[in-house]
Write a protein that binds this DNA or RNA. Structure first.
Lengths: 206, 206
DNA sequence: AGAAACTTGTGATTTCAATCACAACTATTA
DNA sequence: TAATAGTTGTGATTGAAATCACAAGTTTCT
């Protein structure tokens, strides 16, 4: 349903708004102006309004935005009115930490399949998930509707693993390996590499 | 020494170039053209050249870039010709995984201090680091030259912990908590929140 | 040696995102 | 009720980043 004419950079800010609105809701707020939201989220009010206006008019002039309604709208826009099952490949230190991380499930993302190549790890249970042999990727993915993968394998295995995931129907990859994946059109990748962020930070340190 | 006139978005791409150049060097390459680098890194060749030209002329016309020389230059620009000691606050699942992660040290970032508030975790040793009481933050940071912090505490403790870190001389924070930190000018924050990235991805899924 | 191919570095141009400015509407105050 | 203050949504404008186009230099080929 994603209208292709909306700038990606606009889409990228919506989750941020949603996160902040959820905080405000938990604090008991019911209505918020773009100006107040701006202070919380650190983005100019006019930009928030313009971003939202790509998708419709969610506010009331003179009043502001109904938080519950805006949260609902954003969740709908971002396709979050469903549980997204995910596979994780690579159950090392980081993979285990991600399987145990509560924040995914809290926002509707559930790791339902964990794969690894290491015989010592295969068969172990982590937070209710039994790690499977990565060789079972095809059969396990075939009988599921998993479209999102977390990639936490070593850098030298990342590209081939990503290729295999895509060959088995994965459409979005959250890549934790410190390499740039080359994937076909239609597959979306988001990279999480703390070292790149640190190197960006050190530019500004002295 | 960061020239303040260089766009931050340009700076943010330099670590990516550095990462890819390191891969190429390991594969035995010695010289590379911006066009070849472009294919590896997924950024247009002319943009790479323009980015680099902010800092000087590193290439040779008709030939390309000497990889070793360009790596050296980028490392110098990004202040990577030193070991950066770091503190991590919050030694839960994620914190432990980050302490064990080899990728930091490999690029010159070393976690030298780990703090937590949980008595069951304080005193335990992880990858050679003994976890200290977070109450010792002031004294431990005072006698160190740590300027970078990894923040891996729960969301509700993140702001106050960040404030304490800044009060004790921390100038850069890699924030893993799913909230937006409000910090004074001069302190730089980079956020790592996989949920935001996932929510961005799902926009494009059906 | 001369010609052709290759590649960088950058001023000029184009494209895209951010900001401004304000009409339209709502709520509040006197 | 009328006047004032508050707020959204958006066309117009500005600003910044990406791209184009090409001069200048290097290498390779004949």
């Amino acid at each position: 349903m994603a209208k292709p004419n909306i700038p990606d950079i606009v889409v990228s800010r919506l989750p941020l708004y949603l996160q902040t609105l959820n905080h405000l809701l938990r604090e008991g707020e019911e209505v918020i102006s773009s100006e107040e939201l701006s202070e919380q989220v650190g983005i100019p009010a006019v930009q928030i309004r313009k971003d939202l206006s790509y998708f419709g008019g969610f506010g009331v002039k003179g009043k502001g935005y109904d938080i519950i309604h805006l949260i609902d709208s954003l969740r709908s826009i971002l396709n979050l009115n469903q549980i997204w099952p995910m596979v994780i490949v690579g159950v090392g230190n980081l993979g285990q930490a991600l399987i145990r991380y509560q924040g995914f499930a809290r926002q509707g993302f559930e790791i339902v399949l964990a794969l690894d190549i290491n015989p010592k790890i295969i068969g172990t249970e982590i937070a209710g998930i039994v790690v499977q042999d990565v060789g079972l990727m095809e059969s396990e993915l075939k009988r599921s509707d998993i479209r999102i993968a977390l990639l936490t394998v070593p850098a030298n295995a990342a590209q081939s693993t990503a290729d295999a995931l895509v060959a088995n129907g994965i459409k979005a990859i959250l890549n934790y390996a410190p390499i740039i994946l080359k994937l076909p059109e239609g597959v979306r990748v988001a990279n999480i590499d703390p070292v790149l962020k640190l190197e960006h930070l050190t530019y500004y340190l002295s």
